[in-house]
Amino acid sequence: MREIVFDTETTGIQVSEGHRMVEIGCVEMVNRVETGRVFHAYFNPERSMPPEAQAVHGLSETFLSAQPLFRDVCEELLDFIEDSPLVAHNAAFDFAFLNFELGECGRLHIPRSRMIDTLALSRTKHPGAKHSLDALCVRYGVDRSHRVKHGALLDAQLLAQCYVELTGGRQIGLSLHEAPSAAEAVRQDAIAYDITRPVRAPRPHAASAAELERHARFLAQLTDPVWDLGTAKAA
């Protein structure tokens, strides 16, 4: 199954307040595996960039003024996403901006039926936890050290890795191979999550002969133990 994980950067929070999309990043996945195909573009929003928004993504008005308009790359974007499901974090936000830009180009909106919201998936799977993209990366061991500021393509790539974990992890589906032993499973997890602690075999828990002898001597010192009450009453 083909899916597109995507993210957007904008000039603000609400389309209704005149804010526009300035960047989109898309990552192609087939059967929850990244294919290496991506789509990435910046857009001239034809408006000013609020300082608080620039502080988030670092995209200045000067930089964006030299970028193409959305309508100039609209067809290329639509050719990339085709009719695939679209995965985003807090997807309603990204869909609102994407559909506004499509509408401005005279194109049909992408229906919500194609939307997969990883924020909703996270809230269902981890109730009461933090659900930001940063929190998901920490929870699933996804390296985000190079994420200094928000960036649409980088965030889409990080989200793609988190999406795999949210929907079954690195071993999705059934396998015809024999299941690994408990020790091997621990070893594989250590490799996958870079755990350096050594794997130790279970320690024996059976009492030694000396311990059993001390226990018998201790029991012999008890007066009227509870396990003898029924026997005494019957006699």
Rank of each mutant, 00 (worst) to 15 (best):
R2K: 14
I4T: 00
I4K: 00
I4F: 05
D7G: 01
E9P: 06
T11D: 04
Q14V: 03
V15S: 02
V15H: 01
V15F: 13
V15W: 04
S16Q: 15
H19F: 02
R20E: 03
M21W: 00
G25H: 02
V27T: 02
V30C: 10
V30T: 10
E34C: 14
E34R: 15
G36A: 13
R37V: 05
F39C: 05
F39P: 04
A41R: 01
F43D: 01
F43E: 00
N44D: 15
N44V: 10
M49Q: 05
P50Q: 15
P50I: 10
P51N: 14
P51C: 12
E52N: 15
A55T: 09
V56W: 03
G58A: 06
G58C: 10
T62D: 13
T62H: 12
F63N: 02
L64F: 07
L64G: 00
L64K: 00
L64A: 01
L64C: 06
A66G: 10
C74Y: 00
L78H: 01
F80V: 04
E82M: 04
E82C: 10
L86K: 00
V87I: 15
N90H: 04
A92L: 10
D94P: 06
A96Y: 04
A96E: 08
A96N: 04
N99P: 08
G103E: 12
G103N: 09
C105P: 02
G106F: 10
R107G: 01
R112G: 15
S113A: 12
S113I: 04
R114A: 06
R114D: 05
R114Q: 07
M115P: 08
I116N: 01
L119A: 05
L119H: 03
R123W: 07
P127W: 11
C137Y: 02
C137D: 04
V138M: 11
G141A: 10
G141K: 15
V142W: 05
D143T: 11
K149P: 05
K149M: 13
H150W: 05
G151Y: 00
L159F: 05
A160K: 00
V164M: 11
G168W: 02
G169L: 06
I172Y: 06
L174W: 07
L176I: 08
H177I: 03
H177G: 11
H177M: 11
P180L: 06
P180I: 03
P180H: 08
S181W: 04
E184R: 12
R187E: 04
Q188I: 04
Q188H: 11
Q188D: 07
D189V: 09
I191M: 10
A192N: 10
D194F: 07
D194C: 12
T196F: 07
P198R: 09
P204N: 11
S208R: 10
S208A: 13
S208G: 15
E211C: 11
L212T: 10
L219W: 14
D224S: 11
P225L: 12
P225C: 11
V226I: 13
V226Q: 14
W227K: 08
W227Y: 15
D228T: 14
A232L: 13
A232W: 15
A232G: 05
A235R: 15
